[in-house]
Design a protein around this nucleic acid. Sequence first.
DNA 1: TCATTACACTTAACGGTGTTAAGCAAGTAC
DNA 2: GTACTTGCTTAACACCGTTAAGTGTAATGA
Lengths: 210, 210
Amino acid sequence: MGVQERRAREKQELKQEILAAARDLFVHEGFENVSMRKIAEKIEYSPTTIYLYFQDKIDLIDLLCEETLLRLEGRLIAIRVAHPKPIEKMIEGLRAYIEFGVKHPSDYRISFMMEFKDLVESGRNLKCHEIGQRVYQAFRSDVAECIDTGVFAPQDLEATTQCIWAAIHGLVCLLITRPHFQWADRELLIGTLVGSLVEGFKVPAPVAVS
Amino acid sequence: MGVQERRAREKQELKQEILAAARDLFVHEGFENVSMRKIAEKIEYSPTTIYLYFQDKIDLIDLLCEETLLRLEGRLIAIRVAHPKPIEKMIEGLRAYIEFGVKHPSDYRISFMMEFKDLVESGRNLKCHEIGQRVYQAFRSDVAECIDTGVFAPQDLEATTQCIWAAIHGLVCLLITRPHFQWADRELLIGTLVGSLVEGFKVPAPVAVS
DNA sequence: TCATTACACTTAACGGTGTTAAGCAAGTAC
DNA sequence: GTACTTGCTTAACACCGTTAAGTGTAATGA
């Protein structure tokens, strides 16, 4: 009896259709302007149908976030393969991260700019958290490689990794939330940030203390 | 006839009371969980009363944003006075910015992490925009001073200013939105970022291009 | 002193949000 | 052919920002 199989397949298809509609709306209507009702309207089902496929809005967004992180991870893995030299791997990885964020602002917002405080504190475990950790660990390995091969001066691995991530995240954030600011030429901006970051960590631990 | 004066004064007092209540709620309940109705409840007036004092929620938030930026500006001006040496002025200014954001996450969210795209495009002019520009220009002067005095290598002023701002903004953002991440020691983190940033701009234009 | 006017504020409502409970109609199973 | 399962919908709840209309009180002018 292939009935159950067909049903399961159809259920999975509609679930994917909902996710696709949601992502499309996020991209075209903006993060704040997407409601469950609008998603439902787009797929031509009643709003409550979505709740047969997702626990709630957070659950839906979580899956979108997971998809996004998987795409970013794939992009970064490709760069690691293409650039064996640690310094190039680092520079191209940072560039790719920034360009990913700028190119997919809605996806980036969902994955990196949403407030997670309440969610984490509610004890809920998100699918995207796991893969987010994986992407971070991989990046930390890249930083470690730079330190180990002498490209970077010996410094606290965790702090260094987090500083670099924070810096490039900051640029993506501002480019997304302040698109009308008097930004310098984008290529110059990205090049300057990545270049200075790498340069700043070449010299030994210049921790600025008061 | 001091009636009008008294009335004007009372109106101003209630306006300030509303602002204070709003800020208090933002701080204690979190940015997303504050509604006009809750603000009204806190000051023990009906929700619609707020609309006699503010155009809408954006208007209210705009004034809060302005207040916040004025406080930050004051903080940074004090540091400029206390540290005449360009390099110290830069380092302490960056530290102060980060610490301001970490210490007042709700205020920082309102001023620097809110989506402004739709607002700017609607042609509305916000009070906080003007002073935000002023704070940016002052910071750019600090960067220019570092370049002019040879602390930083000669580089594009605008790009350099924006990169440094983006980097410290990124750290504040992540510390706010991801408080449960496995952060390195906060002092080490801040010191590392500020130190590496300054170090990275000492060497001549290391713009990383693909 | 009394009618009028101005003002501060409220009540009621609109259209929107995320979400849940109950119901309906068609397909499957015996 | 009847009972049960499944997929979806309708109706509703409590919230949101916001507006229009109404209310009562205080100030004003005769």
